[in-house]
Nucleic acid binder design. Structure first.
Length: 585
DNA sequence: GGCTGGACTTGGCACCACGGCC
DNA sequence: GGCCGTGGTGCCAAGTCCAGCC
């Protein structure tokens, strides 16, 4: 069996017919087509053979040493292991703001009490009387000790991790050895949602083998549960891509272990996504004309649909599914916008028909934007707002399902999120065309690339909190620039003097080298400053057709390593193989 | 047509290994 | 050789979308 496997490293065979363009030999070409035909199942199945070793469980709880005490109402109290474990979760977060929040404390205390013995329960009735500080100190000391470990000890841990990775981190799917994404089961702890989450502080319970569903092929060697335990179920469902699943107890949703982005199955899906977006490019004008027409429709539902689609297209808003109230943080997308999230200004400064958006989107990231819109859109919005309360839906005749059904009719495979992919990728391509300059040095070209990437991140509202070390690191960089400038003027002086004396010419090069170094630093500073509150990663990883970047690198002679790190190159191996310098999205 | 569960993608952030610098 | 800053990575939450059910 083993000799048939291709590892990621040795595999040079692309996953899709388009890869053919980058291949030279006919024999190889034939092989690609056959292999592709073989693996692209028409019956909806995702694989024929799947073998893996199952998940790695979180290490069991180790009770605290007796000297580390928990105090209730000033008196030491030894907790039983289950209650003690949950207490340690809280103690570990003591420095975090979370533990001061009412909801967090309330949820935690309620779930903690469930783990107590009846005796503990009757004693511990008020979280405010609990003192976790000794526990907290103990964990801080432990993490400090970990940092102070000797090289040998650190190496040993590293080797052990590597061993686990080798054993559990790979699977075999249809003749390929593939890297698994997240083969470790999430450890128990306190749930921390994002934003104002009503469930923050609840206990995320420990996952046991009895909770685990294994998915593998019948003819594979099945993973063994830890001694003395059983899996919940072993199934052989090749219509799905996951290897392991379990149900988490906070939302009752299912969690999965799936393959790494570098895997064939993920790469193919990614490629498909961008192909759908490219198909949208071909018919986007038609669709835009259509929704503009629909702004005039007699039917309210059609007008709403058309205005919502306009926002999704123009502003790259997310679809906005309905959410169960009280289960999650109150966030919205386009279809779930409420009256309170927009304000209309017939005139603002020198612009007409301005809409102001202010709402919390995915991950409770604020979306704030003021944009002028067409008069028709504006009038429609006024109509939608009539006789409504702030908490009413802006688009009361619309939801994502209605919208996506409509989109499906306009183009096969079209959904709301395709617009985000399309607009992100087309923006990158346009920006790169505008910003790139052949006279630029490599660092300047990379800055242009980052700026194009940044334009997309801004469009998609990918924000981040400024890094905690931002100010300091900017200062450090500025110091370096100042030093370099001094160095440069010194070198220039020297050169001038040398020239006057008709001395050696190699000093010329020294000046040049310093100039380059200085320019590099200045570019770095600009890039970092502009990037203060913008996160580039998400768009780079999920929205930008990597073939645009690969082609750009080839066209402008920028090494791909300057744009994609190793992991990203692995994820985008298909694109690196495929795209030539003239690739057009 | 609404509801729900399931599968899969997208998202920000904390943490830590690693490389550069003194 | 130790310190410091940072990029990369893992973590895991939170979206999207679809199928199947009634």
């Amino acid at each position: 069996m083993k000799s048939e496997y291709h590892t990621n490293q040795t595999r040079s065979v692309p996953h899709a017919p388009c890869f053919v363009s980058s291949l030279r030999g006919c024999v190889l070409l034939l092989f690609v087509v056959i292999r592709w035909e073989e693996e692209r199942y028409t019956d909806g199945s995702k694989w024929r053979f799947l073998e893996h070793k199952g998940p790695v469980f979180a290490p069991p709880y180790e009770p605290l040493p007796d000297k580390v005490k928990f105090y209730y109402d000033g008196k030491p109290m030894k907790l039983n292991p289950p209650a003690e474990e949950v207490a340690t979760f809280f103690a570990k977060m003591l420095d975090h703001e979370y533990t001061t929040k009412d909801i967090f404390r309330k949820n935690f205390f309620k779930d903690w009490r469930k783990e107590m013995t009846s005796e503990e329960k009757s004693k511990i009735t008020d979280l405010n009387k609990c003192n976790f500080s000794e526990m907290s100190e103990y964990f801080k000391a432990q993490s400090e000790a970990r940092k102070q470990m000797s090289k040998e000890e650190k190496l040993k841990i590293k080797e052990e991790n590597e061993r686990i990775l080798q054993e559990y981190g790979f699977c075999i799917m249809d003749n390929h050895k593939e890297r698994i994404g997240n083969f470790r089961i999430e450890p128990p702890g306190l749930f921390r949602g994002r934003g104002d989450h009503p469930k923050m502080g609840m206990l995320k319970r420990r996952i046991r083998p009895e909770d685990i569903i294994i998915n593998c092929s019948k003819d594979s060697k099945q993973p063994k549960p830890p001694p003395g335990t059983k899996w919940k179920e072993v199934r052989h469902d090749n219509k799905v891509t996951w290897l392991v699943s379990w149900t988490e107890n906070i939302q009752g949703s299912i969690k999965y272990i799936m393959l790494n982005p570098s895997s064939r199955i993920k790469g193919e899906k990614d490629w498909q996504k961008y192909e759908t977006a490219r198909r949208l490019k071909k018919c986007v004008d038609r669709i835009r004309n259509q929704y503009r027409e629909d702004w005039k429709s007699k039917e309210m539902r059609i007008r709403q649909r058309a205005v919502a689609l306009y926002f999704i297209d123009k502003l790259a808003l997310r679809a906005g599914n309905e959410k169960e109230e009280g289960e999650t943080a109150d966030t919205v997308g386009c279809c779930s916008l409420r009256v309170e999230h927009i304000k209309l200004y017939p005139k603002m400064d020198d612009q007409e028909y301005v809409v102001e958006f202010d709402f919390l989107g995915k991950d409770s990231i604020r979306y704030y934007n003021k944009i002028p819109v067409e008069k028709r859109v504006f009038k429609n919005l006024q109509l939608f707002l009539e006789n409504k309360q702030p908490e009413d839906d802006l688009f009361d005749r619309l939801n994502t399902s209605i919208l996506n059904k409509h989109l499906q009719e306009l183009m096969d495979g079209l959904t709301a999120k395709v617009f985000r992919t399309y607009n992100a990728s087309i923006t990158l391509q346009q920006q790169l065309k505008e910003l790139s300059c052949s006279d630029d040095s490599i660092p300047a070209k990379v800055l242009s690339y980052n700026r194009a990437n940044r334009a997309v991140a801004i469009l998609c509202n990918h924000q981040r909190a400024p890094p905690k070390t931002f100010e300091k690191s900017m200062q450090n960089l500025q110091t370096k620039i100042d030093e370099k400038q001094n160095q440069l003027s010194a070198a220039r002086k020297q050169l001038k003097a040398a020239k006057a004396d008709h001395k050696a010419s190699h000093d010329d090069k020294t000046v040049q080298r310093i100039e380059e170094q200085l320019m590099k630093l200045q570019v770095q500073a600009t890039d970092r400053e502009e990037n203060k509150q913008i996160a580039l990663g998400t768009s780079k990883l999920n929205y930008l057709d990597p073939r645009i970047s690969v082609a750009w690198c080839k066209k402008w002679g920028v090494p791909i390593e300057k744009i994609y790190n190793k992991t990203q190159r692995e994820k985008f191996a298909w694109a690196i193989d495929m795209a030539e310098k003239d690739y057009e999205f």
